[in-house]
Design a protein around this nucleic acid. Structure first.
Lengths: 203, 203
DNA sequence: TATAAGAAGCGACCGTTGGTCGCTATAAGG
DNA sequence: CCTTATAGCGACCAACGGTCGCTTCTTATA
């Protein structure tokens, strides 16, 4: 391993991605608690202390991973929005996209959901920013649907959280009652037929 | 501190409850990770190693707490079911009850949701048993509603998980869009008007 | 009353953890 | 060729969850 070479920003980023990938794999296998920095360092073929040249703490690794996957998801959402004009279909596709978040990311997302309140303020803020940005782009779809008269007037922010949490309920069960796609379909049907103007108007 | 006295089972149970209470308070404040057994021991006025006379591990404390709160909730549900004949109102009341789970319990429930897969098998099984029992009693209400023709035919197990997860989405947000009761109301309206036979029949 | 049995409680200790620090080795710039 | 800056690392630290054997006390029996 050559030392003393200045790594370019891209190279640093690549290192960070590599470390993150290893960490996510281990965390998905054994949980956050039982995954140690030493273990990650071994698999990344570097000394443990070198990890700290790329991430300030263990927590930051998962914060970073979260930001990355959210960023990617937001890109997907924007693409879906630009390609699909029906708010209803738009929502379906967004949820389907959310469902296909790679497996390794799921455990850190769930873990963050539980522990994010107790992280350092800096990390909390980064997580909040990412999460809000993601939620807001979905919320926008719902609000557009309301404005277009496709959805009844509803609490779009709440609705967004319900939808996202429902995906978690689908993905993260030890007792699935059907395939994930089927459950997602049923879930969206439940939500839509409660939210769409169909005969009755709740205003 | 008298030593050598044989504690009755009730006294042991009381000790366990006391320890659990302290632990829950600390965990709600600082998170599971940052709550140490030493800290708990100090507040419980006992040596750290004495904690291990009442709980085998730190994890077991939260497993025990989970079992307790679920048990209590199941009692409440049974009472609601026996007093309320309308499946719709029944669901409303059950969800409202779920919403009123004491604050300290919430953080351990969320934490368990994230980490339960990585606990010792014994704990995993205890958690599973409690959770299933709880879910099943709610699922029963939905199935009754379906049989009575009040609800349309749906995946009752999925529906249960959606409902429970939605309560979490309501309670556990840093950006509430209304009071918890209002959000719960809106949530149930969304679910019910998607699930109830109102004009259309999806079969 | 003397004593054996057994449980409550604890201090000292263990391996492992996340994280720090100062040193070494090396490349680039003058 | 020498200075400077940096990637990388080994040794170390306090704190953690958890264990063990000892002390201290009560109760039961003789």
């Amino acid at each position: 391993m050559p030392k003393g070479i200045m790594l370019s920003l891209q190279q640093q980023e690549a290192r960070r991605e590599e470390i993150t990938g290893i960490a996510l794999r281990l965390i998905a296998e054994n949980g956050f608690q039982k995954t140690s920095m030493r273990e990650i360092a071994v698999l990344a073929n570097m000394g443990k202390s070198s990890l700290y040249d790329y991430f300030k703490t263990k927590d930051e690794i998962v914060v970073y991973a979260f930001e990355k996957v959210i960023e990617e998801n937001i890109q997907n959402i924007h693409k879906i929005i630009s390609e699909e004009s029906s708010p209803e279909q738009c929502l379906r596709k967004i949820m389907l996209n959310h469902l296909t978040v790679p497996k390794q990311y799921r455990s850190v997302m769930i873990w963050l959901n539980a522990e994010s309140d107790y992280l350092e303020e800096d990390y909390r803020n980064r997580l909040k920013a990412a999460r809000y940005k993601y939620q807001d782009s979905i919320q926008g779809v719902i609000e557009n649907g309301v404005d277009a008269g496709v959805f009844r007037r509803t609490d779009a922010a709440l609705m967004t959280r319900l939808l996202l949490n429902s995906v978690i309920a689908i993905v993260y069960t030890s007792r699935p009652s059907a395939s994930m796609e089927k459950m997602l379909d049923e879930t969206i049907n439940i939500f839509l037929h409660g939210i769409m103007n169909g005969g009755k108007d709740y205003d």
